[in-house]
Design a binder for these strands. Structure first.
Lengths: 230, 230
DNA sequence: CAGTGGTCTAGACCACAAG
DNA sequence: TTGTGGTCTAGACCACTGG
């Protein structure tokens, strides 16, 4: 090979954009032209540009060619790990406690959220996750029993619901939302803080083939920060 | 070609994982074996598996082979667009107002955050972004004057600082953090809410070649939710 | 050492959309 | 219509690392 790698090409492209040789909105040369310039195969240029397009730096369209994005949309990526992992990665000792576990008919707001039947049976579980015995995360979860056969016989004393679902209902789709919320009484008590304190909350709705499996709200203890590199 | 696409292979792999043919932790066949099975080139299998590995579903190591991730780390991706775009995408009419603009020596906490010199000059700008004339986002930004030549002559009445920086200092690296915060007086007043209200906040530190360019804190009006598909 | 993934090549055909 | 990106192929060599 010529020693040209797709990463080398990416570096060069980024350099040219930074140096304003190619400016936001500009059309850059075609793959064929760049392959000729760099003395490599088109496939190599293709991979380089395709990946840059995935990050939002370039925009590509057949026939129209490749442009530098006019206003680059940064794509921030966050790792959503199993909570135990998250805590252990921070050097904490993980422990969890189940505060409540009940089989109930879905209340109306959960029916609406999860698009459940009026008579749908759910498992409602509230769990506290601790790091070094300090409250770390308060979990309020609703599970659609119909969607997860086998959950009746699961034992959540050793493995948390969180982890059990990951293992037994993998690769599900859904949405995740981040928001801020003033602590209510239940949250304040669980997280050992005061009512009204601003909490970082993530809500996740998980589906397998259009069917809602679980809705979970995770409220982090005050001071939590979710960070990523750009 | 045989009609086999890398996407078809990805679908098949996901199906096998869901069907528990391949379970978390399991080693799956090598690229060569899968290429033979699917009747396609190894490069096609490679792309399929490589992309799945990027999403965290598979783990690959030379010689060791490819495994189904024992506890899959979901990667959630968020688009960080220019604020004007974000508002317009939601159907709002964008407007912004500069609440304060001052050239000042960096206060100590900013010095520390941005790793600035004691005598570093900064531009401190507080901006309110509005959607349909309703407060949407309160921006508190510090800019390292030394890192952005040309900013002295910029006019921020038409183009917001946000947008100016994107256009003039593109492709910078840095970190972004999400957190929840009780509104202080300045935030409450700007966002037309009450002190103590939980606000969703993002903080961004932007660098070009190790040099801090800008630190910005964005406090969203109450009720803001940041959502993405998984 | 040997098997696996990582990458590049040269060529080909296809799908899409701008002109 | 035709140029562009999107993808596949068959083969090759390399880089890493487990056994």
């Amino acid at each position: 090979m010529s020693g040209i790698t797709y990463q080398r090409i990416q570096t060069e492209v980024l350099h040219r954009i930074r140096a304003r040789v190619w400016r936001p909105g500009d059309l850059i040369p075609s793959e064929v032209a760049l392959a000729a310039e760099f003395g490599c195969a088109r496939a190599t240029v293709n991979r380089a540009l395709r990946e840059l397009a995935e990050t939002g730096i370039l925009e590509r369209r057949r026939k129209a060619g490749t442009r530098v994005s006019p206003d680059p949309v940064h794509k921030a990526t966050f790792d959503i790990a199993v909570i135990r992992r998250e805590i252990e990665a921070l050097g904490g000792v993980y422990r969890h406690a189940i505060l409540q576990k009940a089989h109930v008919l879905a209340p109306s707001f959960i029916q609406a959220l999860m698009k459940l039947d009026i008579h749908a049976e759910t498992l409602h579980i509230r769990t506290l996750h601790l790091s070094n015995d300090q409250p770390y995360l308060y979990e309020d979860r609703w599970i659609n029993m119909a969607a997860v056969p086998g959950i009746r016989s699961a034992d959540f004393s050793r493995v948390s619901v969180n982890e059990w679902l990951v293992q037994n209902a993998p690769l599900s789709g859904g949405e995740i939302t981040f928001l801020a919320k003033n602590a209510d009484e239940a949250e304040a008590e669980a997280l050992d803080t005061t009512v009204g304190k601003a909490l970082f909350v993530t809500e996740r709705l998980t589906r397998i083939k259009q069917v809602s499996v679980t809705f979970v709200r995770l409220a982090y203890a005050p001071g939590y920060r979710m960070t990523t590199r750009l």
